[in-house]
């Protein structure tokens, strides 16, 4: 079955996936999720935007995980629930974007400042088929983990559950 993004128009798929931000045609302000209505810049009254692919690589601003299954509308990837990690990532465009860490990676795999790269993974399946979402893949000092985490669609368990768990 064809995989489709869980939300339309926020990211591209394929071998080099990227977030789709917006660029204000008046002042050039970059925003993500893509701005549709009003430019955020208080010095600009722009209401027209062009699609702008954001950098695929950034550095971790901070990170955490979800040890308990979040309430709906979250849809668990697996049953029983497997914890996943999240990171807020600074991009060269000057903004920080949240996302889960790629499957199989946990909080022990990153630090503030760690480099990460955008990947796309399946997060759930609905009546349309498998649904994908962007995630952040740690790219440094995690090569060993990357090689043993198996399937790159990545739905494995987080490798760490917090330092004092």
């Amino acid at each position: 079955m064809t995989e489709t993004p869980a939300i339309e128009g926020w990211f591209t798929t394929g071998s080099e996936p990227a977030l789709l931000g917006s660029g204000c045609t008046e002042c050039g302000n970059i925003a993500f999720p893509p701005e549709r209505d009003f430019c955020r810049n208080p010095a600009c009254a722009g209401e027209a935007f062009e699609v702008r692919e954001l950098s695929r690589r950034g550095t971790v601003w901070s990170y955490t995980d979800a040890q308990y299954q979040p309430p709906p509308p979250y849809i668990a990837t697996s049953d029983p629930y497997e914890p996943f990690a999240l990171a807020a990532v600074e991009l060269p465009e000057g903004l920080v974007v949240l996302g889960q860490l790629a499957g199989g990676f946990g909080v022990a795999d990153v630090k503030v400042g760690s480099p990460v790269e955008l990947v796309v993974e399946t997060i759930y399946t609905d009546e349309v088929g498998p649904r994908t979402m962007w995630k952040w893949l740690p790219t440094e000092s995690s090569e060993a983990r990357a090689s043993d985490r198996g399937d790159s669609s990545g739905q494995g368990p987080a490798t760490s559950k917090g330092e004092s768990a």
């Binding site: 869980a6 939300i7 999720p33 601003w61 901070s62 990170y63 955490t64 995980d65 979800a66 299954q69 979040p70 309430p71 709906p72 509308p73 979250y74 849809i75 996943f84 999240l86 807020a88 949240l98 996302g99 889960q100 909080v107 630090k111 503030v112 400042g113 997060i123 979402m133």
Partner: peptide, 27 residues
């Protein structure tokens, strides 16, 4: 966005508090 953050990322309120906390630890 309040609905989407749960659906697309499973990002809860404690998740945000935890980002700030972890940053204090690392920095």
């Amino acid at each position: 966005p309040d609905w989407l953050r749960f659906r697309l990322m499973g990002m809860t309120n404690p998740g945000y508090f935890a980002l700030y906390a972890r940053r204090r630890m690392d920095l």
